[in-house]
Design a protein around this nucleic acid. Structure first.
Lengths: 156, 156
DNA sequence: CTTCATAGGTCAAAGAAAGTCAGAAATTGC
DNA sequence: GCAATTTCTGACTTTCTTTGACCTATGAAG
């Protein structure tokens, strides 16, 4: 297993136990995993970004720390944000996939729905001779269309 | 016997023993068979494509892997018919919608899933400056991609 | 208010895997 | 035997991970 994965799940375990927020020392954690401190930043950047549903803040100097907060939003808030702000005119595949798996983690969509959405915007589906710029636009429109459908259904 | 055939049956044996899903290292497998790593890609492309009833995903970089999922199982007759015969290279919107609502009536997908699929291939989503012929092709590919995903989930 | 120790941040480069594609080699069909 | 197709390989590309050298912010002492 990858080091990054170990660190990721270590942090996620902490987040589950102590709930929604965790504070850690970069150097201690690096020491614990026997890696370069900057490895921690890499993990934060690739697995705890806002797109992944986390916020991080930190402080340097004596008594410094890194705090990670799991963002909790209502389903429709999240959907509206995605539709109106996050996804613009165009969006990349990786980015889309991240947003989708986050929706699944937040239980706004089911696992089955998530894989359907992923299938629809996957390269496998979009692998047609169309300029890349168009694909981005297409992906954005498809995502919004699907998210609106979900939003409409969720309205109780 | 051909190398490709050996690799193919090797993987299929793994798939039988460890059941429907297998993860492997491209370089290790190539080493084992004493061939170029890219040979593995060739085998995947020619024998484990979606048309053959398999899905593959992979990751590059340290700790990378290739995962192969067998999707076709006798249960999903209807889906395989749609994927391999009914939907061709291209398909119209009306037709798609009809197929989707049939799937719903046949309880192969839930109502929510049906509306998701419809949202993905709707005119609203595909309303981008792309030639109509392309749209048909796009729709066909998206449908197949989504149906494969459903088949993967339905396999018993 | 300077200085110094303590923490975290950044970035580029090295390393680790997988992907692509053109062309060589082997097979097959006629 | 020859053309067409399929199989294989190798060079090059892309993506993801890990490390290390250098940078910046904070607080405590003097």
């Amino acid at each position: 297993m990858r080091l990054s994965d170990s660190i990721e799940s270590f942090i996620k375990t902490m987040l589950n136990e102590e709930s929604t927020e965790v504070e850690l020392k970069r150097n201690e954690l690096a020491e614990y995993f026997g890696c370069a401190p900057s490895q921690i930043n890499y993990v934060l950047a690739t697995r705890f970004s806002p797109d992944h549903g986390y916020l991080t803040e930190s402080r340097r100097g004596g008594g410094g720390y890194i705090r990670i907060v799991r963002v909790v939003e209502s389903g429709s808030q999240r959907l509206m944000y995605l539709i109106n702000e996050r996804i613009g005119e165009s969006i990349g595949e990786e980015e889309c996939m991240r947003l989708i798996s986050q929706l699944k983690e937040q239980r706004i969509v089911t696992a089955d729905e998530a894989s359907l959405m992923a299938a629809a915007i996957s390269a496998r589906a979009l692998g047609v001779p169309v300029p890349d710029t168009m694909k981005g636009v297409l992906r954005a429109r498809m995502m919004k269309s699907m998210l609106m459908t979900i939003a409409a259904r969720n309205r109780t």
